[in-house]
Structures are given as C-alpha cells and as structure tokens.
Computed example of a mutant assay.
Amino acid sequence: MPAPMTLHGPRLVLRPWRPADAGPLAAINTDPEAMRHFASPMSPAESDAWMARLQAHIEAHGWGFWCVERRAAPGCIGAVGLLHVAFEAPFTPAVEIGWRIAPAQQRQGFAEEAARLALAAGFGPIGLAEVVAFTRVANEPSWRLMRKLGMARGEDFEHPRLPEGHPARPHILHRLMRADWVAQRLG
C-alpha cells in the first residue's frame, strides 16, 4: 500500500479524510443546492458511507478524492481528486477527476485550484496516461471548468447508475491526455 498523498496549493490543502470531516462533508452532501446536479442529495448515512469509500480508495492507492481545506481556515470545504470509475461505460476503465465544493465556498476558484493540484499529481507521480471527467449536460459550471482545465469534449453517454428516463441520466464526457497536459504547461 502506498503512503497517502497530501497536496499543497497556494490556498488549499488536499489531504486524506479524518473523522472530524464527516459532519462538514454531510452538510455538503445533504444540501439540495450543492447536490442540484446529482440525482438527489445524500442522507447523512450515505454521506458517511461515501467518505469511507473515498478514504478506502486513498488507503489502497495513495490518492483519490481528497478532503479539501483552506490553508487560512482549516476544515473540510469539499472533496476533489481522482478516482477509478466504478461503473462500466464505453470509456472505462478510466480514472475520473471530480469536485464538490460547499456552496458558501463556490465561485472563489477553489475547485479549479484543487483540480489543477489533482491533475499535477495524476500526470506526475501517479503516472496516469489519461483523466476523464463527466457531468450531466445541465451542469454548465462543471463542464466549463473541464474546458478551462484543458479537457476536450468526448462522447456523450447515459449514466448507467441512473434509471432510464431520469433527467440526470444524459452525461457529457471530457478527456485529458498526459501529453496534452504537458504541452499546455510548456506553453
């Protein structure tokens, strides 16, 4: 088992999960505003189970969806990172990048900063060849961030974990290859 990674940015730290993070994460996951682009908000028990799965991924791989905290005010403000996609789709197996930031902390560039830290780890020490991201079509803030990160739109797909006809089932995929990420950084 690799040692869990902690990532440090100018304003943020991405770190493994701690028991004290359960309450702040549940506040995000149960908030209808924070979860407006998901099938539904989570219950507190579902949020706790999700946090346990995220921490198990970090323990198994050394990386995953980390707890995000501000350097200036420690405490969980969200979850951002890399995760093995846990369902079958035309683009799997794959590693996804994703973000979930508390509504009060949104529109401050935290998701972008954290995502850039995660990509640098993914294409650097983790050694990934490609990272994908996906969201429902209506989630313009997320797909705009995907493009800002240099990701290219891939194929649309129906999320297999949502029932046929569910309004959140249509998803768009974005991809970023390591070579493209390196080229962007070199200018």
Rank of each mutant, 00 (worst) to 15 (best):
P4S: 09
G9M: 12
L14I: 10
R15S: 01
P16I: 00
W17N: 06
W17F: 13
P19Y: 12
T30R: 09
T30S: 05
P32K: 09
P32A: 11
A34C: 11
A34Y: 09
A34V: 13
R36C: 11
P41M: 12
A45D: 15
A49V: 02
A49Q: 14
M51F: 07
R53P: 05
R53S: 14
A56Q: 14
I58T: 05
E59H: 06
E59W: 01
G62S: 10
W63N: 02
F65V: 02
W66A: 04
C67R: 10
C67I: 08
V68Q: 04
E69M: 07
R70S: 07
A72T: 13
A72V: 09
A73L: 11
G78K: 07
G78N: 09
F87G: 00
A89N: 06
P93S: 04
A94L: 09
V95A: 07
E96P: 03
E96D: 13
I97T: 15
P103C: 09
R107W: 01
G109H: 02
R116Q: 15
A120C: 01
A121W: 05
P125Y: 06
I126R: 01
G127P: 03
L128Y: 10
V132K: 05
F134G: 03
T135Q: 02
A138L: 08
E140A: 14
P141F: 08
W143K: 07
R147N: 04
M151A: 14
F157C: 07
R161T: 08
E164R: 06
G165A: 10
H166Q: 06
P167Y: 07
R169A: 09
I172A: 06
L173V: 02
H174D: 10
D180W: 04
V182G: 06
G187Y: 03
